[in-house]
């Protein structure tokens, strides 16, 4: 029997096996709602058709990469893939996580079992990653079918998309712990939509004035877009290292923040 000192609680190390049971719970739910998963493929494809080809026919070969013009669809596709990885991860964590945390109190029930807070967070992030990886794989196959892949480096686009998914899943989980009501999600959208529109998604970053270029380079989705675009178009350069470091550091920091916040929220 150990006397207890106030406020001392060793942070629990997540166990992959325990976390996997939460992944299984989500898989059981989505076995029934598979149409939801399938329809998730739909939106990025629509954007690719509408912007890549529809608007692309107006752009022609105005976009150049390393001095060579490339088809607009090939330019936009990796950016849409990065955006889709971000959106999927944030929706699955920030929105669903909040719903389960505050509304249905799902985690109160889960924490009465051997699963701990860290297991819960890990399980949800892994689930978001599994979904995101499926989407990224589907999108890559479509890109290959449409001839939008110009380099064998593209094979690394799948793990790169997983990294983007991890970073934003961690950020989304951390954000969800700050959300008080559904109205606060407007704030999440206020961040996500500009990221989608201005991260050199639809035109090269060089179109921005110098100062704005710097601002864009500070934001996370830009690095995701740059990473995937480099890989699928084969313009490999030292900038890739910067993208990777940025995403890893941001993801790690967000994960830490999420774990600390959740511990405090769920274990009063």
């Amino acid at each position: 029997m150990i006397a207890i000192l106030a406020g001392r609680r060793p942070a629990q190390v997540p166990a992959a096996r325990r976390a996997s049971h939460l992944v299984e719970r989500n898989a059981i739910l989505y076995r029934r709602e598979w149409s939801l998963i399938v329809s998730g493929f739909f939106e990025p494809l629509l954007y690719l058709l509408a912007i890549g080809y529809g608007v692309g026919s107006l752009v022609g070969s105005a976009v150049t990469l390393n001095g060579h013009p490339i088809p607009y669809a090939a330019f936009v596709a990796p950016a849409l893939m990065a955006t889709s990885a971000m959106n999927g991860a944030v929706y699955e964590t920030a929105f669903n996580f909040f719903y389960k945390l505050k509304y249905v109190k799902l985690y109160d029930a889960v924490l009465a079992t051997p699963l701990g807070v860290a297991d819960v967070a890990l399980g949800e992030i892994v689930w978001a990653l599994i979904r995101g990886t499926l989407y990224a794989l589907g999108f890559l196959i479509v890109m290959a079918g449409l001839g939008l892949i110009a380099s064998p480096w593209a094979i690394l686009a799948l793990p790169a998309a997983m990294l983007i998914g991890f970073t934003f899943a961690a950020v989304g989980t951390a954000a969800s712990t700050f959300v008080r009501t559904w109205q606060d999600f407007d704030l999440v959208l206020i961040v996500m939509i500009p990221l989608f529109l201005f991260s050199a998604t639809f035109y090269p970053i060089t179109l921005y004035p110098g100062a704005l270029q710097l601002v864009v380079q500070l934001t996370p989705l830009y690095h995701g877009v740059d990473l995937l675009r480099s890989l699928t178009t084969g313009s490999i350069g030292p900038g890739l290292v910067g993208d990777l470091v940025y995403l890893v550091v941001l993801g790690g920091a967000a994960l830490l923040l999420a774990a600390v916040r959740l511990q405090r929220l769920l274990l009063k």
Partner: peptide, 12 residues
């Protein structure tokens, strides 16, 4: 139920 940490005292 081990979802709340005691502030003081002994519990097993």
């Amino acid at each position: 139920g081990c979802v709340s940490t005691p502030s003081s005292g002994t519990l097993s």
